[in-house]
Nucleic acid binder design. Structure first.
Lengths: 250, 250
DNA sequence: GGTCATCTGCTTGTCTGACAAGTGAGCGCA
DNA sequence: TGCGCTCACTTGTCAGACAAGCAGATGACC
């Protein structure tokens, strides 16, 4: 099925141009402060019209790679590519990102978040967590797909830190790893007990946070994430597992 | 001096258009899946040419807010604005971000990073940390501006986790908060002992990491960040301080 | 009547040419 | 020498045109 939707489409010209420029910047061929070729030069070099070049540059501007000045030209900005954070840098194949690294980043963040949430959560925060938690319970009985509620639960925990930045980061991570939550709640996930296991870990997190027990909340979050990683059969050379063992076993 | 460079320039038309659209998306006026007005309609509505509209849309595409399909139109993408993470969302005033929230996010990340680094650091990693550390020592004697070395030290710690994602996140954060490191190392920072205090905390972090003591490394990182926050006289209602007291005192 | 190919209108993608606005360098003049 | 001016160049904006892709309507055929 996916093979049918993933037909190779000819890439848009602006995509190709911006990818090329971005590659040269990341490769160090164009360094911060350097001036890019003029639009006219790029038109000749890439064999496209100025409209295409301008669109490509607009994209690079949005990503913080270049800045333009009327009458002067376009320049590679200092901190090129550091204006925003992405899991997979645009222009590189998504497969080059190690899922183990992603889970580790989540482990880092979510354990701290759970800990902080335990210290700051209000009663309203607990209510917000109970909603998705109850829906996942229901899904456990009905065998429904509840990965959206899984998302919502983690967001509710982040929201309980009362730090909007932390909340936004969690929303960002959720959007990035959304697919990785599906196999927990699909038919096979229910049958093999992946859903039930995940939900038990959620409950442990919730109860620690509700009790205001920061250390227990951190531990529960760590266990949830490492268990989730192993449930997805991530073969990451035992790295995360080893780290978890040391981190939580200290 | 900065007042001279910050003269009010008439905003580029494409900026205004993309800001307007982005505002409507974030406000929920345009929801994920909704179709945007056609380029022609936007030309009429905003009173600009199609080139401007297309550039504005190119920016929104780069930010992951919209997707376009030839022959169909432009659509607000699911997870609009979640394609990347920024401290300050584009289009909103930078002043709306609470610096205390930023330091808290760093506290969350860097304490975990230091802990992980202590467990994984190789001898090469320690060498990489000693470079910036020595340069900051030198700057302490000469009174030089060493905020770049400060950056480099924190990056070296992140690099010792051997997780490229973690490393990139640290680079991202460094680029975002670069200005906030300057007052530690300027003339006043040296005179008032801010530089010396920061460096002492760096040394504590380094030694804990070198010793492989994960708990001590976490604690040192937490103390460095909370101290840095208070050095910068952040009045954040004692929130971070209170959280730190509880987090580290558990 | 139902099914299929085709046609049509609309939308985005790309091209071309032009002018406006801002910048820096070089020129001429006092 | 020092000042102002012009000029070439660059990005910003505009206008019009055609190509490519899509959805729905139209119409022919079984």
């Amino acid at each position: 099925m996916p093979a049918e939707t993933l037909i190779a489409r000819p890439p848009r010209l602006a995509d190709s141009v911006s990818a090329s420029l971005q590659g040269r910047i990341r490769a160090g061929e164009l360094r911060p402060g350097d001036r890019l070729p003029t639009e006219k030069q790029m038109c000749d070099r890439f064999g496209v019209s100025r409209a295409v070049v301008r669109e490509a540059i607009a994209r690079l501007k949005a990503d913080g790679y270049v800045e333009t000045h009327q009458g002067l030209g376009a320049f590679v900005s200092r901190d090129a590519g550091k204006a925003n954070f992405r899991l997979v840098a645009p222009g590189v194949p998504a497969a080059s990102v190690d899922l183990g690294d992603v889970f580790e980043l989540r482990l880092l963040m979510e354990s701290g978040i759970a800990q902080m949430a335990a210290l700051r959560r209000t009663d309203e925060d607990l209510v917000a967590m109970r909603g998705p938690l109850a829906r996942m319970d229901e899904a456990l009985r009905s065998g429904a797909q509840a990965s959206d509620d899984d998302d919502a639960f983690h967001c509710a925990v982040a929201s309980a830190t009362h730090n909007p930045l932390v909340e936004r980061f969690m929303e960002f991570m959720n959007a990035q790893i959304r697919e990785s939550r599906v196999p927990t709640w699909d038919r096979e996930g229910h049958a093999l007990g992946r859903a039930a296991a995940a939900q038990a870990e959620h409950v442990a997190m919730f109860e620690a946070i509700a009790a205001g027990d920061a250390a227990a909340a951190r531990l529960a979050a760590e266990e949830h994430l490492t268990a989730a990683a192993s449930r997805l059969e991530m073969q990451i050379g035992g790295r995360t597992t080893a780290a978890h063992g040391k981190i939580t076993g200290e």
